[in-house]
Design a protein around this nucleic acid. Sequence first.
DNA 1: TAGTATAGTGAACAAGTGTTCACCTTGTCA
DNA 2: TGACAAGGTGAACACTTGTTCACTATACTA
Lengths: 190, 190
Amino acid sequence: MGKNYLAFFNKFYKTKRRLPSYREFMALAGLKSTNAVHKIVAKLEEEGFLRRDDGGRLAPGSRFLGVPVLGNIAAGFPTPAEEELCDTMTLDEYLIGHKEATYMLKVSGDSMIEAGIMPGDLVLVERGRQPRDGDVVVAEVDHAWTLKYYKKTGEHITLVPANRKYRPIVPTDELNIAAVVVGAVRKYKV
Amino acid sequence: MGKNYLAFFNKFYKTKRRLPSYREFMALAGLKSTNAVHKIVAKLEEEGFLRRDDGGRLAPGSRFLGVPVLGNIAAGFPTPAEEELCDTMTLDEYLIGHKEATYMLKVSGDSMIEAGIMPGDLVLVERGRQPRDGDVVVAEVDHAWTLKYYKKTGEHITLVPANRKYRPIVPTDELNIAAVVVGAVRKYKV
DNA sequence: TAGTATAGTGAACAAGTGTTCACCTTGTCA
DNA sequence: TGACAAGGTGAACACTTGTTCACTATACTA
């Protein structure tokens, strides 16, 4: 078993956001021949960590970025450290559809707490999308911005909070919907 | 205003996971001189979309990956399409600390629903971390895996669900804690 | 003990790299 | 009309790229 050369690639990628060239990696890993790198890369490519396109330039493989998805929680953890059956994915690819129209907002207030959106969470919202019945939207009500369910029955529109403490809102004159929520993210400070 | 050359970079990066060379971009954008690319890149670098390190090799800038964070939801949306004050960030960088020990699990069951973790959500869990009082953990109880709060008072450990329908669990013989939840992610099908 | 993978060295190669120069359009604005 | 800037061409430059060859040292196995 050789050294953990993948760690060098990871570290380089983390700061530079690209993969090193063979010479750069030589210096990183303390090697003295590009051929050594060539062989290391071939192995990492085989394992799915790196990718090479025409011309041999390196790109991150599917296992380089991304986190392994283990499947349903009821299945628990695969007891050994080996699990090839699962795939990996990056959160950005998973959550973001139209990157140009997507923004993040930090949630304050508890108006959607029963929908699992807690204060402090980040919501991913997409602009310019037509809200549909049942969507969570970013709306302006009473000159303040909040999250609400968008309920549409016929032509009748109601903004419904997911919190028994608050009442549904029937917009009076103008209804300002800035964006539709496409995802929610919570980080636990552990 | 020239064409939207950034879109070419985005599309290339999305499929190849690296940035194109000048010649490759020439072909993409239908240009006939590397110098044209040179000037385009200089502009995109100035705007923060691209980065160049020594040797001129390209890397994604801070605005290339990542989503703009607009701040608190109460502030709503900045009315024009201009907001330079906010920063951008990628979800992976935000949520993932120790990438090698991090996995994703799809949540089934409603035992943590009052903590904002709904069935169908994805939780990010980190292995090999010592759980502390109040953490959400992946635990094996009654030969099944679930999410529970990890409550520790003195030497006494209880696994507490965030759902009034279920009762806290006092582990009898052995307590198997596989991982600690460090994040939660929900995707709305819009 | 000899045999054989494994991992790395060192040098050479053609091809591709970003940069820089002078030059050419084209549209804008005074 | 003339000046000017923006955006693109075309060619040359020195340098870096990944690849390949033959060779060496080390460790393990039969």
